[in-house]
Design a protein around this nucleic acid. Sequence first.
DNA 1: TATTGTTATACTCTATAACTATA
DNA 2: TATAGTTATAGAGTATAACAATA
Lengths: 166, 166
Amino acid sequence: MAANAGIAGTGAEHFPPSVAFLVSRLGFEVGSRLAAGLAPLGIEPRDFGLLRALAHAEGESQRSIGRALNIPPGRMVALLDGLERRGLVRRRPHPTDRRAHALHLTPAGHRLLNDAVDVVVRVEVSLCAGLEPAEREQLLALLGRLARPGAVTPEAHPGLSAVTGW
Amino acid sequence: MAANAGIAGTGAEHFPPSVAFLVSRLGFEVGSRLAAGLAPLGIEPRDFGLLRALAHAEGESQRSIGRALNIPPGRMVALLDGLERRGLVRRRPHPTDRRAHALHLTPAGHRLLNDAVDVVVRVEVSLCAGLEPAEREQLLALLGRLARPGAVTPEAHPGLSAVTGW
DNA sequence: TATTGTTATACTCTATAACTATA
DNA sequence: TATAGTTATAGAGTATAACAATA
């Protein structure tokens, strides 16, 4: 986990209550918890994002998945090397294009993905522990209306990954 | 702005509604908007955090402020070099300790900090544009109750900075 | 002996652009 | 000629540890 990343402690004391501030702080918090939870599984949040995508697109090529996830080709190689070394992913010959690899989750990869999803669920539960179910629904609705209006990048959420790997 | 950071696009379609997910995504979103808004001022979010701290602790030493913000000494030097070069900060001789520097915001630094705060306010307003004032209050309250319970690092929010610089 | 600011080093992460083999 | 995966290189960002001056 990133022990200490950058500049500012928050100095929240001097700051007016702010949705932007809280959301930033919590976003980092969630990322940290997720990383901590995934560490015992031997993967990082970004691997989780990739594994999940692979589960939904078995047999696709590296570039195809890379495009969907906004990962440049060079990074895909390194990422997949790691996952393959751990036996979670396999590169098989592509049936119709001899240049490409067909990517597949191994059984171990599927099992680990399940465990990783459990981690995410646990993070969600612990995060919302102080809320009644109805309050959580309310919060989800309000956050959803925040998410919409002026997304800087409407197409995707590039770089979210930097924090969460989602 | 970080054009494209890491791994995963979200694949949100395949994901259950989740406070953790939304908060992560919005956290990154806020960070991006803040960076975009500050760029014309010639600073980055992390500089904002430091300038704000300086405004509240004029005359302190580098290490003193660094401790408060969780910035190691080496980074403080580089950060302050940048701010001083832009005429926003000044290192003056410390009145009681000849090893230390007394840090001060210049008038230009104060002006820029004000502009930066305006940027933050604009981000907050645009983020909450879809909400009625009462709804925003409600959201603030709910987020506040999320923030409390199990902070991974109770002492501070180290590394938040990575995203927001707050 | 401890602490201040500084500097140098190393390490991680990432983007970019070559390169090969196929199409 | 365009595209698949790969590799190499370089750049940013950061932590770490050594350093001289002062306490």
